[in-house]
Nucleic acid binder design. Structure first.
Length: 538
RNA sequence: GCGCCUGUAGCUCAACUGGAUAGAGCAUCUGCCUUCUAAGCAGAGGGUUGCGCGUUCGAGUCGCGCCAGGCGCACCA
Protein backbone atom coordinates (compact mmCIF):
# COMPACT_ATOMS: atom_id res chain seq x y z
CA UNK A 1 0.00 0.00 0.00
CA UNK A 2 1.26 3.40 -0.94
CA UNK A 3 1.61 6.40 1.36
CA UNK A 4 -1.64 8.27 1.71
CA UNK A 5 -0.41 11.80 1.08
CA UNK A 6 -3.91 13.19 1.01
CA UNK A 7 -4.58 11.87 4.48
CA UNK A 8 -1.32 13.38 5.79
CA UNK A 9 -2.22 16.79 4.44
CA UNK A 10 -5.68 16.51 5.87
CA UNK A 11 -4.56 15.60 9.34
CA UNK A 12 -1.97 18.39 9.36
CA UNK A 13 -4.70 20.90 8.57
CA UNK A 14 -6.87 19.39 11.26
CA UNK A 15 -4.02 20.05 13.69
CA UNK A 16 -4.17 23.69 12.69
CA UNK A 17 -7.93 23.83 13.15
CA UNK A 18 -7.68 22.27 16.58
CA UNK A 19 -5.18 24.86 17.68
CA UNK A 20 -7.31 27.76 16.46
CA UNK A 21 -10.52 26.15 17.67
CA UNK A 22 -12.15 26.37 14.28
CA UNK A 23 -14.37 23.78 12.81
CA UNK A 24 -15.17 23.73 9.15
CA UNK A 25 -15.55 21.30 6.29
CA UNK A 26 -12.78 21.38 3.72
CA UNK A 27 -11.42 19.33 0.83
CA UNK A 28 -8.08 18.01 -0.27
CA UNK A 29 -8.40 17.35 -3.96
CA UNK A 30 -6.10 16.37 -6.80
CA UNK A 31 -5.41 19.28 -9.11
CA UNK A 32 -6.02 19.36 -12.80
CA UNK A 33 -3.23 21.69 -13.73
CA UNK A 34 0.46 21.23 -13.16
CA UNK A 35 1.02 24.82 -12.03
CA UNK A 36 -1.24 24.12 -9.06
CA UNK A 37 0.81 21.20 -7.86
CA UNK A 38 -0.57 17.76 -7.01
CA UNK A 39 -3.20 18.51 -4.40
CA UNK A 40 -4.99 21.63 -3.34
CA UNK A 41 -7.13 22.59 -0.41
CA UNK A 42 -9.94 25.12 -0.16
CA UNK A 43 -9.64 25.40 3.60
CA UNK A 44 -8.67 29.09 3.55
CA UNK A 45 -11.64 30.00 1.37
CA UNK A 46 -13.91 28.24 3.80
CA UNK A 47 -12.48 30.07 6.80
CA UNK A 48 -12.38 33.51 5.25
CA UNK A 49 -14.69 36.39 6.07
CA UNK A 50 -14.72 40.18 5.66
CA UNK A 51 -11.86 40.76 8.08
CA UNK A 52 -9.78 37.76 7.17
CA UNK A 53 -9.06 37.39 3.47
CA UNK A 54 -8.31 33.84 2.31
CA UNK A 55 -4.70 34.47 1.34
CA UNK A 56 -3.89 35.71 4.81
CA UNK A 57 -5.39 32.66 6.45
CA UNK A 58 -3.64 30.46 3.94
CA UNK A 59 -0.30 31.93 4.95
CA UNK A 60 -0.99 31.14 8.58
CA UNK A 61 -1.93 27.59 7.73
CA UNK A 62 1.13 27.15 5.57
CA UNK A 63 3.38 28.29 8.38
CA UNK A 64 1.82 25.84 10.79
CA UNK A 65 1.71 22.75 8.60
CA UNK A 66 4.94 23.04 6.60
CA UNK A 67 7.07 21.34 9.24
CA UNK A 68 4.50 18.59 9.65
CA UNK A 69 4.76 17.67 5.98
CA UNK A 70 8.48 17.70 5.42
CA UNK A 71 9.73 14.77 3.37
CA UNK A 72 6.34 14.39 1.72
CA UNK A 73 5.60 17.83 0.38
CA UNK A 74 8.44 19.75 -1.18
CA UNK A 75 6.61 23.02 -1.75
CA UNK A 76 3.44 24.76 -0.63
CA UNK A 77 2.09 27.66 -2.68
CA UNK A 78 -0.80 30.01 -2.14
CA UNK A 79 -2.79 31.31 -5.04
CA UNK A 80 -6.29 32.80 -5.22
CA UNK A 81 -6.98 31.56 -1.72
CA UNK A 82 -6.16 27.98 -2.57
CA UNK A 83 -3.29 26.17 -0.92
CA UNK A 84 -1.37 24.11 -3.44
CA UNK A 85 0.76 21.16 -2.43
CA UNK A 86 3.65 19.84 -4.49
CA UNK A 87 4.58 16.30 -3.62
CA UNK A 88 8.22 15.41 -3.17
CA UNK A 89 9.30 13.47 -6.24
CA UNK A 90 10.93 10.80 -4.12
CA UNK A 91 7.47 9.69 -3.04
CA UNK A 92 6.55 9.03 -6.66
CA UNK A 93 9.78 7.32 -7.40
CA UNK A 94 9.56 5.00 -4.44
CA UNK A 95 6.09 4.07 -5.59
CA UNK A 96 7.42 3.24 -9.03
CA UNK A 97 10.11 1.03 -7.54
CA UNK A 98 7.57 -0.84 -5.48
CA UNK A 99 5.46 -1.55 -8.55
CA UNK A 100 8.56 -2.67 -10.38
CA UNK A 101 9.49 -5.03 -7.59
CA UNK A 102 6.14 -6.38 -6.52
CA UNK A 103 4.03 -6.09 -9.66
CA UNK A 104 0.31 -5.64 -9.55
CA UNK A 105 0.08 -7.02 -6.04
CA UNK A 106 1.41 -3.72 -4.79
CA UNK A 107 -1.45 -1.88 -6.48
CA UNK A 108 -4.16 -3.83 -4.72
CA UNK A 109 -6.54 -1.73 -2.74
CA UNK A 110 -8.60 -3.22 0.02
CA UNK A 111 -11.63 -1.00 0.03
CA UNK A 112 -14.24 -3.72 0.17
CA UNK A 113 -12.78 -5.59 3.11
CA UNK A 114 -14.16 -8.89 1.86
CA UNK A 115 -17.77 -7.77 1.83
CA UNK A 116 -20.03 -10.08 -0.11
CA UNK A 117 -21.49 -8.39 -3.17
CA UNK A 118 -24.02 -9.85 -5.59
CA UNK A 119 -24.14 -8.22 -9.00
CA UNK A 120 -27.14 -9.17 -11.08
CA UNK A 121 -26.97 -8.05 -14.68
CA UNK A 122 -28.14 -8.71 -18.23
CA UNK A 123 -30.95 -10.99 -16.96
CA UNK A 124 -32.58 -10.81 -20.39
CA UNK A 125 -35.74 -12.83 -20.95
CA UNK A 126 -35.05 -15.98 -22.92
CA UNK A 127 -37.45 -14.80 -25.60
CA UNK A 128 -34.93 -13.63 -28.15
CA UNK A 129 -31.25 -13.02 -28.82
CA UNK A 130 -29.29 -10.49 -26.80
CA UNK A 131 -29.48 -6.99 -28.17
CA UNK A 132 -27.05 -4.14 -28.09
CA UNK A 133 -28.73 -2.77 -24.97
CA UNK A 134 -27.82 -6.01 -23.24
CA UNK A 135 -24.35 -5.72 -24.65
CA UNK A 136 -23.77 -2.43 -22.90
CA UNK A 137 -25.06 -3.82 -19.62
CA UNK A 138 -22.94 -6.93 -20.01
CA UNK A 139 -19.74 -5.05 -20.79
CA UNK A 140 -20.32 -2.64 -17.93
CA UNK A 141 -21.35 -5.27 -15.41
CA UNK A 142 -18.36 -7.44 -16.14
CA UNK A 143 -15.89 -4.56 -15.83
CA UNK A 144 -17.50 -3.25 -12.67
CA UNK A 145 -17.40 -6.72 -11.14
CA UNK A 146 -13.74 -7.12 -11.91
CA UNK A 147 -12.89 -3.74 -10.44
CA UNK A 148 -14.87 -4.35 -7.25
CA UNK A 149 -13.22 -7.71 -6.86
CA UNK A 150 -9.82 -6.12 -7.29
CA UNK A 151 -10.79 -3.52 -4.69
CA UNK A 152 -11.32 -6.21 -2.11
CA UNK A 153 -14.98 -7.11 -2.45
CA UNK A 154 -16.14 -10.69 -2.63
CA UNK A 155 -18.14 -10.50 -5.84
CA UNK A 156 -20.62 -12.94 -7.37
CA UNK A 157 -22.07 -12.34 -10.83
CA UNK A 158 -25.55 -13.64 -11.40
CA UNK A 159 -27.99 -13.91 -14.30
CA UNK A 160 -31.69 -14.20 -13.52
CA UNK A 161 -33.68 -16.03 -16.16
CA UNK A 162 -37.28 -14.83 -16.47
CA UNK A 163 -38.68 -18.05 -17.74
CA UNK A 164 -42.18 -17.97 -16.35
CA UNK A 165 -45.37 -16.12 -17.02
CA UNK A 166 -47.21 -14.78 -19.99
CA UNK A 167 -44.20 -13.79 -22.09
CA UNK A 168 -43.09 -17.40 -22.16
CA UNK A 169 -46.55 -18.52 -23.22
CA UNK A 170 -46.44 -16.05 -26.06
CA UNK A 171 -43.02 -17.31 -27.00
CA UNK A 172 -44.30 -20.88 -27.12
CA UNK A 173 -47.29 -19.92 -29.23
CA UNK A 174 -45.08 -17.93 -31.57
CA UNK A 175 -42.78 -20.90 -32.10
CA UNK A 176 -45.74 -23.17 -32.63
CA UNK A 177 -47.03 -20.84 -35.32
CA UNK A 178 -43.65 -20.73 -37.05
CA UNK A 179 -43.48 -24.52 -36.93
CA UNK A 180 -46.85 -24.99 -38.59
CA UNK A 181 -46.11 -22.26 -41.08
CA UNK A 182 -43.07 -24.25 -42.13
CA UNK A 183 -45.37 -27.22 -42.66
CA UNK A 184 -47.32 -25.05 -45.06
CA UNK A 185 -50.22 -24.41 -42.78
CA UNK A 186 -51.93 -21.12 -42.29
CA UNK A 187 -51.12 -20.33 -38.69
CA UNK A 188 -50.83 -16.84 -37.25
CA UNK A 189 -48.37 -15.62 -34.68
CA UNK A 190 -50.24 -13.93 -31.83
CA UNK A 191 -50.35 -10.21 -32.36
CA UNK A 192 -48.36 -9.46 -29.23
CA UNK A 193 -46.15 -12.50 -29.80
CA UNK A 194 -42.60 -12.70 -31.09
CA UNK A 195 -42.24 -11.99 -34.77
CA UNK A 196 -38.49 -12.20 -35.12
CA UNK A 197 -37.05 -14.47 -37.75
CA UNK A 198 -34.90 -16.29 -35.24
CA UNK A 199 -37.94 -18.38 -34.33
CA UNK A 200 -38.08 -19.69 -37.89
CA UNK A 201 -34.55 -21.03 -37.49
CA UNK A 202 -35.48 -22.61 -34.21
CA UNK A 203 -38.64 -24.11 -35.69
CA UNK A 204 -36.52 -25.75 -38.39
CA UNK A 205 -34.62 -27.61 -35.71
CA UNK A 206 -37.71 -29.29 -34.34
CA UNK A 207 -37.53 -32.98 -35.28
CA UNK A 208 -40.34 -34.51 -33.42
CA UNK A 209 -43.13 -32.74 -31.70
CA UNK A 210 -45.27 -33.50 -28.80
CA UNK A 211 -48.27 -31.35 -29.37
CA UNK A 212 -48.57 -29.58 -26.11
CA UNK A 213 -47.97 -26.04 -25.11
CA UNK A 214 -45.14 -26.88 -22.83
CA UNK A 215 -43.08 -28.51 -25.55
CA UNK A 216 -42.86 -25.36 -27.64
CA UNK A 217 -42.08 -23.18 -24.67
CA UNK A 218 -39.34 -25.47 -23.44
CA UNK A 219 -37.86 -25.94 -26.89
CA UNK A 220 -37.76 -22.23 -27.61
CA UNK A 221 -36.42 -21.41 -24.20
CA UNK A 222 -33.58 -23.89 -24.25
CA UNK A 223 -32.48 -22.94 -27.75
CA UNK A 224 -32.57 -19.23 -27.02
CA UNK A 225 -30.77 -19.63 -23.73
CA UNK A 226 -28.10 -21.63 -25.46
CA UNK A 227 -27.69 -18.79 -27.94
CA UNK A 228 -27.48 -16.21 -25.14
CA UNK A 229 -24.78 -18.21 -23.40
CA UNK A 230 -22.81 -18.53 -26.61
CA UNK A 231 -23.04 -14.83 -27.33
CA UNK A 232 -21.89 -13.91 -23.85
CA UNK A 233 -18.99 -16.28 -24.11
CA UNK A 234 -17.98 -14.79 -27.42
CA UNK A 235 -18.26 -11.36 -25.82
CA UNK A 236 -16.08 -12.46 -22.92
CA UNK A 237 -18.66 -12.06 -20.18
CA UNK A 238 -19.07 -14.81 -17.63
CA UNK A 239 -21.54 -15.46 -14.86
CA UNK A 240 -20.94 -17.37 -11.65
CA UNK A 241 -24.58 -18.34 -11.28
CA UNK A 242 -27.66 -18.74 -13.40
CA UNK A 243 -30.90 -18.74 -11.47
CA UNK A 244 -34.36 -19.08 -12.89
CA UNK A 245 -37.75 -17.69 -12.09
CA UNK A 246 -39.52 -20.99 -12.67
CA UNK A 247 -37.18 -22.60 -10.18
CA UNK A 248 -38.42 -20.26 -7.43
CA UNK A 249 -42.00 -21.12 -8.27
CA UNK A 250 -41.41 -24.88 -8.36
CA UNK A 251 -39.45 -24.95 -5.12
CA UNK A 252 -42.16 -23.07 -3.32
CA UNK A 253 -40.02 -20.01 -2.60
CA UNK A 254 -42.68 -17.71 -3.95
CA UNK A 255 -45.38 -19.26 -1.84
CA UNK A 256 -43.13 -19.02 1.21
CA UNK A 257 -42.35 -15.39 0.68
CA UNK A 258 -46.03 -14.57 0.27
CA UNK A 259 -46.78 -16.32 3.53
CA UNK A 260 -43.98 -14.39 5.15
CA UNK A 261 -45.41 -11.09 3.93
CA UNK A 262 -48.89 -12.14 4.94
CA UNK A 263 -47.71 -12.75 8.47
CA UNK A 264 -46.25 -9.30 8.55
CA UNK A 265 -49.62 -8.01 7.44
CA UNK A 266 -48.25 -6.61 4.20
CA UNK A 267 -50.70 -8.31 1.86
CA UNK A 268 -54.40 -7.87 1.25
CA UNK A 269 -57.06 -9.00 -1.21
CA UNK A 270 -58.90 -6.65 -3.48
CA UNK A 271 -60.83 -7.14 -6.74
CA UNK A 272 -60.02 -10.82 -6.73
CA UNK A 273 -56.25 -10.25 -6.61
CA UNK A 274 -53.61 -10.27 -3.92
CA UNK A 275 -51.83 -6.98 -3.29
CA UNK A 276 -48.53 -6.04 -1.65
CA UNK A 277 -48.51 -2.87 0.44
CA UNK A 278 -45.52 -1.39 -1.33
CA UNK A 279 -46.79 2.13 -0.71
CA UNK A 280 -45.77 1.70 2.91
CA UNK A 281 -42.16 1.63 1.73
CA UNK A 282 -42.19 4.56 -0.64
CA UNK A 283 -43.85 3.23 -3.78
CA UNK A 284 -46.59 5.37 -5.40
CA UNK A 285 -49.19 2.71 -4.93
CA UNK A 286 -49.68 -0.89 -3.89
CA UNK A 287 -48.85 -3.64 -6.37
CA UNK A 288 -50.47 -6.90 -7.34
CA UNK A 289 -48.53 -10.07 -6.55
CA UNK A 290 -51.14 -12.69 -7.44
CA UNK A 291 -53.31 -11.94 -10.43
CA UNK A 292 -57.01 -12.64 -10.87
CA UNK A 293 -56.16 -15.69 -12.94
CA UNK A 294 -54.18 -17.08 -10.01
CA UNK A 295 -50.72 -16.60 -11.56
CA UNK A 296 -47.91 -14.73 -9.84
CA UNK A 297 -46.82 -11.38 -11.17
CA UNK A 298 -43.21 -10.71 -11.99
CA UNK A 299 -42.89 -8.79 -8.75
CA UNK A 300 -43.91 -11.81 -6.66
CA UNK A 301 -41.20 -14.02 -8.08
CA UNK A 302 -38.70 -11.20 -7.93
CA UNK A 303 -39.31 -10.76 -4.21
CA UNK A 304 -38.60 -14.44 -3.76
CA UNK A 305 -35.42 -14.05 -5.77
CA UNK A 306 -34.23 -11.11 -3.69
CA UNK A 307 -35.00 -12.99 -0.52
CA UNK A 308 -32.76 -15.73 -1.88
CA UNK A 309 -30.00 -13.19 -2.48
CA UNK A 310 -30.23 -11.98 1.10
CA UNK A 311 -30.38 -15.49 2.56
CA UNK A 312 -27.07 -16.33 0.98
CA UNK A 313 -25.45 -13.62 3.06
CA UNK A 314 -24.81 -10.92 0.49
CA UNK A 315 -24.26 -7.57 2.16
CA UNK A 316 -24.44 -5.44 -0.96
CA UNK A 317 -26.86 -6.09 -3.80
CA UNK A 318 -26.20 -4.42 -7.12
CA UNK A 319 -28.77 -4.66 -9.91
CA UNK A 320 -27.83 -3.38 -13.32
CA UNK A 321 -30.91 -2.68 -15.41
CA UNK A 322 -32.08 -0.84 -18.49
CA UNK A 323 -34.05 2.41 -18.34
CA UNK A 324 -37.24 0.57 -19.25
CA UNK A 325 -37.16 -0.85 -15.73
CA UNK A 326 -36.85 2.37 -13.86
CA UNK A 327 -40.56 2.59 -13.07
CA UNK A 328 -40.26 -0.82 -11.52
CA UNK A 329 -37.46 0.13 -9.14
CA UNK A 330 -39.55 1.74 -6.36
CA UNK A 331 -41.67 -1.36 -5.92
CA UNK A 332 -38.64 -3.62 -5.90
CA UNK A 333 -36.96 -1.37 -3.36
CA UNK A 334 -40.12 -1.52 -1.28
CA UNK A 335 -39.99 -5.26 -1.43
CA UNK A 336 -36.34 -5.52 -0.48
CA UNK A 337 -36.92 -3.06 2.30
CA UNK A 338 -39.86 -5.08 3.62
CA UNK A 339 -37.53 -8.06 3.87
CA UNK A 340 -35.52 -6.15 6.44
CA UNK A 341 -32.56 -5.42 4.19
CA UNK A 342 -30.78 -2.08 4.58
CA UNK A 343 -31.93 -0.25 1.49
CA UNK A 344 -28.73 1.76 1.28
CA UNK A 345 -26.94 -1.42 0.33
CA UNK A 346 -29.36 -2.16 -2.48
CA UNK A 347 -27.90 -0.36 -5.47
CA UNK A 348 -29.80 -0.17 -8.72
CA UNK A 349 -27.71 1.12 -11.60
CA UNK A 350 -29.53 2.15 -14.72
CA UNK A 351 -27.58 1.81 -17.94
CA UNK A 352 -29.10 4.16 -20.49
CA UNK A 353 -29.96 3.03 -23.98
CA UNK A 354 -27.70 2.86 -26.95
CA UNK A 355 -29.08 4.28 -30.14
CA UNK A 356 -27.79 2.50 -33.17
CA UNK A 357 -27.14 4.25 -36.42
CA UNK A 358 -26.04 2.91 -39.72
CA UNK A 359 -24.71 6.11 -41.17
CA UNK A 360 -27.61 8.49 -40.94
CA UNK A 361 -30.25 5.84 -40.54
CA UNK A 362 -31.43 5.37 -37.01
CA UNK A 363 -32.30 1.79 -36.21
CA UNK A 364 -35.24 1.56 -33.87
CA UNK A 365 -35.42 -1.64 -31.96
CA UNK A 366 -38.10 -3.93 -30.74
CA UNK A 367 -37.63 -7.53 -29.72
CA UNK A 368 -41.21 -8.43 -30.36
CA UNK A 369 -41.36 -6.95 -33.84
CA UNK A 370 -38.08 -8.68 -34.45
CA UNK A 371 -36.31 -5.57 -35.63
CA UNK A 372 -33.00 -5.15 -33.90
CA UNK A 373 -29.27 -5.44 -34.22
CA UNK A 374 -28.18 -8.33 -32.10
CA UNK A 375 -25.12 -8.28 -29.91
CA UNK A 376 -23.81 -11.11 -32.03
CA UNK A 377 -24.04 -9.08 -35.21
CA UNK A 378 -22.17 -6.25 -33.55
CA UNK A 379 -19.39 -8.54 -32.37
CA UNK A 380 -19.10 -10.07 -35.83
CA UNK A 381 -18.99 -6.67 -37.49
CA UNK A 382 -16.62 -4.68 -35.33
CA UNK A 383 -15.11 -7.14 -32.86
CA UNK A 384 -15.63 -7.85 -29.19
CA UNK A 385 -12.91 -5.57 -27.82
CA UNK A 386 -13.96 -2.52 -29.80
CA UNK A 387 -17.62 -3.08 -28.93
CA UNK A 388 -16.90 -3.48 -25.24
CA UNK A 389 -14.74 -0.42 -25.11
CA UNK A 390 -17.35 1.68 -26.89
CA UNK A 391 -19.87 0.58 -24.28
CA UNK A 392 -17.82 1.25 -21.19
CA UNK A 393 -15.89 4.40 -21.90
CA UNK A 394 -18.96 6.56 -21.52
CA UNK A 395 -20.68 6.90 -18.21
CA UNK A 396 -23.80 4.81 -17.96
CA UNK A 397 -26.16 7.79 -17.58
CA UNK A 398 -25.33 8.96 -21.09
CA UNK A 399 -27.49 7.90 -23.94
CA UNK A 400 -25.00 6.38 -26.27
CA UNK A 401 -24.99 7.03 -30.00
CA UNK A 402 -23.36 4.14 -31.73
CA UNK A 403 -22.84 4.47 -35.43
CA UNK A 404 -21.89 1.09 -36.77
CA UNK A 405 -20.68 2.52 -40.04
CA UNK A 406 -18.25 4.82 -38.29
CA UNK A 407 -17.14 2.17 -35.84
CA UNK A 408 -16.41 -0.11 -38.76
CA UNK A 409 -14.90 2.40 -41.14
CA UNK A 410 -12.72 4.01 -38.54
CA UNK A 411 -11.90 0.86 -36.71
CA UNK A 412 -8.20 1.63 -36.85
CA UNK A 413 -8.84 4.93 -35.10
CA UNK A 414 -10.97 3.48 -32.38
CA UNK A 415 -9.68 4.48 -28.95
CA UNK A 416 -9.39 0.86 -27.94
CA UNK A 417 -6.65 0.38 -30.52
CA UNK A 418 -4.90 3.42 -29.19
CA UNK A 419 -4.69 1.75 -25.78
CA UNK A 420 -3.78 -1.61 -27.13
CA UNK A 421 -1.12 -0.08 -29.33
CA UNK A 422 0.41 1.65 -26.33
CA UNK A 423 0.40 -1.67 -24.53
CA UNK A 424 2.04 -3.48 -27.43
CA UNK A 425 4.72 -0.82 -27.72
CA UNK A 426 5.51 -1.07 -24.02
CA UNK A 427 5.64 -4.81 -24.13
CA UNK A 428 7.88 -4.77 -27.16
CA UNK A 429 10.24 -2.28 -25.54
CA UNK A 430 10.77 -4.57 -22.59
CA UNK A 431 11.47 -7.50 -24.89
CA UNK A 432 13.78 -5.47 -27.04
CA UNK A 433 15.61 -4.32 -23.92
CA UNK A 434 16.06 -7.93 -22.88
CA UNK A 435 17.53 -8.78 -26.25
CA UNK A 436 20.04 -6.02 -25.75
CA UNK A 437 20.97 -7.44 -22.37
CA UNK A 438 18.98 -5.22 -20.04
CA UNK A 439 17.78 -7.25 -17.11
CA UNK A 440 15.67 -5.25 -14.68
CA UNK A 441 15.75 -8.00 -12.10
CA UNK A 442 19.41 -7.50 -11.48
CA UNK A 443 19.67 -3.80 -11.02
CA UNK A 444 18.22 -0.95 -9.05
CA UNK A 445 17.56 1.77 -11.62
CA UNK A 446 18.61 5.37 -10.92
CA UNK A 447 15.30 7.06 -11.31
CA UNK A 448 16.82 10.48 -10.78
CA UNK A 449 17.86 10.29 -14.40
CA UNK A 450 14.20 10.57 -15.35
CA UNK A 451 13.77 14.29 -15.62
CA UNK A 452 11.92 14.93 -18.85
CA UNK A 453 8.42 16.33 -18.54
CA UNK A 454 6.86 13.25 -20.09
CA UNK A 455 8.74 11.02 -17.70
CA UNK A 456 7.66 12.93 -14.65
CA UNK A 457 4.07 13.04 -15.92
CA UNK A 458 4.06 9.31 -16.43
CA UNK A 459 5.50 8.68 -12.98
CA UNK A 460 2.76 10.81 -11.47
CA UNK A 461 0.12 8.97 -13.46
CA UNK A 462 1.34 5.69 -12.02
CA UNK A 463 0.89 7.13 -8.61
CA UNK A 464 -2.70 8.13 -9.38
CA UNK A 465 -3.84 4.62 -10.26
CA UNK A 466 -5.19 3.88 -6.80
CA UNK A 467 -7.10 7.15 -6.71
CA UNK A 468 -8.78 6.17 -9.95
CA UNK A 469 -9.77 2.79 -8.58
CA UNK A 470 -11.22 4.49 -5.50
CA UNK A 471 -13.22 6.87 -7.65
CA UNK A 472 -14.59 4.02 -9.71
CA UNK A 473 -15.66 2.18 -6.60
CA UNK A 474 -17.26 5.27 -5.07
CA UNK A 475 -19.15 6.37 -8.16
CA UNK A 476 -19.52 3.10 -10.12
CA UNK A 477 -17.95 5.08 -12.95
CA UNK A 478 -16.04 2.46 -14.87
CA UNK A 479 -15.37 5.01 -17.62
CA UNK A 480 -12.95 6.82 -15.31
CA UNK A 481 -10.49 3.98 -15.67
CA UNK A 482 -10.79 4.22 -19.46
CA UNK A 483 -10.08 7.94 -19.35
CA UNK A 484 -7.10 7.31 -17.15
CA UNK A 485 -5.61 4.80 -19.58
CA UNK A 486 -6.22 7.07 -22.53
CA UNK A 487 -4.42 9.82 -20.66
CA UNK A 488 -1.41 7.65 -20.04
CA UNK A 489 -1.43 6.38 -23.61
CA UNK A 490 -1.34 9.89 -24.94
CA UNK A 491 1.67 10.86 -22.86
CA UNK A 492 3.36 7.57 -23.57
CA UNK A 493 2.99 7.73 -27.37
CA UNK A 494 4.33 11.25 -27.30
CA UNK A 495 7.23 10.22 -25.09
CA UNK A 496 8.02 7.26 -27.28
CA UNK A 497 8.11 9.44 -30.37
CA UNK A 498 10.32 12.06 -28.79
CA UNK A 499 12.90 10.03 -26.91
CA UNK A 500 14.71 6.79 -27.43
CA UNK A 501 14.06 4.36 -24.62
CA UNK A 502 16.64 1.72 -25.33
CA UNK A 503 19.56 3.94 -26.22
CA UNK A 504 23.26 4.34 -25.80
CA UNK A 505 23.52 5.35 -22.17
CA UNK A 506 23.14 2.25 -20.09
CA UNK A 507 22.00 3.81 -16.84
CA UNK A 508 19.43 5.98 -18.56
CA UNK A 509 18.12 2.99 -20.48
CA UNK A 510 17.67 1.09 -17.26
CA UNK A 511 15.77 3.96 -15.69
CA UNK A 512 13.52 4.35 -18.71
CA UNK A 513 12.86 0.65 -18.98
CA UNK A 514 11.93 0.64 -15.30
CA UNK A 515 9.33 3.28 -16.01
CA UNK A 516 8.00 1.35 -19.01
CA UNK A 517 7.85 -1.88 -17.06
CA UNK A 518 5.78 -0.25 -14.32
CA UNK A 519 3.46 1.29 -16.88
CA UNK A 520 3.10 -2.10 -18.46
CA UNK A 521 2.07 -3.55 -15.11
CA UNK A 522 -0.64 -0.93 -14.76
CA UNK A 523 -1.81 -1.49 -18.32
CA UNK A 524 -1.98 -5.25 -18.04
CA UNK A 525 -3.95 -4.94 -14.88
CA UNK A 526 -6.27 -2.20 -16.11
CA UNK A 527 -7.05 -3.83 -19.40
CA UNK A 528 -7.81 -7.03 -17.56
CA UNK A 529 -10.15 -5.11 -15.25
CA UNK A 530 -11.89 -3.56 -18.23
CA UNK A 531 -12.06 -6.97 -19.87
CA UNK A 532 -10.20 -5.84 -22.97
CA UNK A 533 -7.78 -8.32 -24.45
CA UNK A 534 -4.03 -7.87 -24.56
CA UNK A 535 -2.75 -8.28 -28.11
CA UNK A 536 0.78 -9.63 -28.63
CA UNK A 537 1.41 -7.44 -31.63
CA UNK A 538 -0.49 -5.11 -33.91
C1' G B 1 -50.35 14.78 -16.87
C1' C B 2 -46.49 12.33 -13.54
C1' G B 3 -41.47 10.01 -12.85
C1' C B 4 -36.22 8.94 -14.40
C1' C B 5 -32.05 10.17 -17.78
C1' U B 6 -29.85 13.65 -21.10
C1' G B 7 -28.71 18.76 -23.29
C1' U B 8 -21.03 21.16 -23.03
C1' A B 9 -16.60 22.74 -29.79
C1' G B 10 -19.23 20.89 -36.62
C1' C B 11 -19.90 15.34 -34.53
C1' U B 12 -19.28 11.73 -30.20
C1' C B 13 -18.35 12.62 -25.22
C1' A B 14 -15.11 13.98 -20.21
C1' A B 15 -14.86 17.23 -16.00
C1' C B 16 -14.02 12.77 -9.11
C1' U B 17 -17.55 15.78 -3.02
C1' G B 18 -19.55 22.94 -6.02
C1' G B 19 -13.25 25.12 -7.09
C1' A B 20 -8.70 28.36 -10.29
C1' U B 21 -8.03 29.93 -17.59
C1' A B 22 -14.41 24.09 -19.22
C1' G B 23 -10.92 19.22 -21.53
C1' A B 24 -10.23 14.76 -25.04
C1' G B 25 -11.19 12.03 -29.56
C1' C B 26 -13.24 12.29 -34.46
C1' A B 27 -13.70 15.54 -38.62
C1' U B 28 -10.91 19.93 -41.11
C1' C B 29 -6.02 22.29 -42.27
C1' U B 30 -0.15 22.15 -41.99
C1' G B 31 4.19 19.26 -41.14
C1' C B 32 6.99 14.28 -39.53
C1' C B 33 8.86 7.16 -41.30
C1' U B 34 16.97 4.97 -43.30
C1' U B 35 15.78 4.72 -36.10
C1' C B 36 12.68 0.70 -29.99
C1' U B 37 6.01 -1.05 -34.64
C1' A B 38 3.31 5.69 -38.46
C1' A B 39 -3.02 1.59 -35.53
C1' G B 40 1.97 6.79 -34.02
C1' C B 41 3.82 12.11 -33.23
C1' A B 42 4.08 17.77 -33.55
C1' G B 43 1.20 22.20 -34.64
C1' A B 44 -3.54 25.23 -35.96
C1' G B 45 -8.52 26.73 -35.84
C1' G B 46 -13.09 25.59 -33.22
C1' G B 47 -17.27 27.48 -26.63
C1' U B 48 -22.62 32.77 -23.99
C1' U B 49 -21.85 24.56 -20.94
C1' G B 50 -30.26 24.65 -24.08
C1' C B 51 -32.73 29.47 -21.81
C1' G B 52 -33.94 32.48 -17.33
C1' C B 53 -33.89 33.48 -12.20
C1' G B 54 -31.77 32.08 -7.44
C1' U B 55 -28.21 30.01 -3.48
C1' U B 56 -22.37 31.81 -2.31
C1' C B 57 -16.15 33.79 -1.71
C1' G B 58 -16.99 30.58 -6.21
C1' A B 59 -22.04 27.12 -10.48
C1' G B 60 -21.24 22.88 -16.38
C1' U B 61 -22.08 20.78 -11.34
C1' C B 62 -26.92 22.63 -6.28
C1' G B 63 -32.50 24.78 -6.17
C1' C B 64 -36.82 26.68 -8.87
C1' G B 65 -39.22 27.76 -13.68
C1' C B 66 -39.22 27.13 -18.87
C1' C B 67 -37.49 24.71 -23.85
C1' A B 68 -35.83 20.20 -26.50
C1' G B 69 -34.73 14.78 -26.99
C1' G B 70 -34.92 9.62 -24.96
C1' C B 71 -37.27 6.04 -21.72
C1' G B 72 -41.05 4.62 -18.47
C1' C B 73 -45.88 5.18 -16.05
C1' A B 74 -49.81 -2.89 -16.34
C1' C B 75 -53.21 -7.87 -12.69
C1' C B 76 -46.08 -7.64 -19.37
C1' A B 77 -41.34 -9.02 -18.07
Amino acid sequence: MKIDVKEKIKSSIEEFLKEYKKNVQFDILPTEKEEFGDFYSNIALRLSDKDNPPNLIAEKIKEKISPLLSGIIKKIEIKNGFINFFIDENIYKEHLLKILKNGKGYLEENIGNGKKVLIEFVSANPTGPLTIAHGRQAAYGEALSRILKFAGYNVTKEYYINDAGRQMELLGESLKARYYQLKGMNYDIPEDGYHGEYLIDIAKEIKEIRDDKKFFIEFAKSKILEGIKNDLEKFGVYFDNWVSESWFIEKGNVENILNFLKEKNLLYEKDGSLWFKSSLFGDDKDRVVVKKDGFYTYLATDIAYHKYKIERGYEILINIVGPDHHGYIPRLKSAVSSLGFNIENFIVLIVQLTTIYRGKEKISMSTRKGQFITLRQLIDEIGADASKFFFIFRKIDSHLDFDIEIAKKQSSENPVYYLQYAYVRMKHLIEYGKEKGYDLEKIKPSLDLLEKNEELDLIKKLWRFNDVIKSVVNTYGVHLLCEYLLDISKIFHSYYQKYRIVGEKQELTYARLALIKSLLTVFELSLFLLNISLPERM
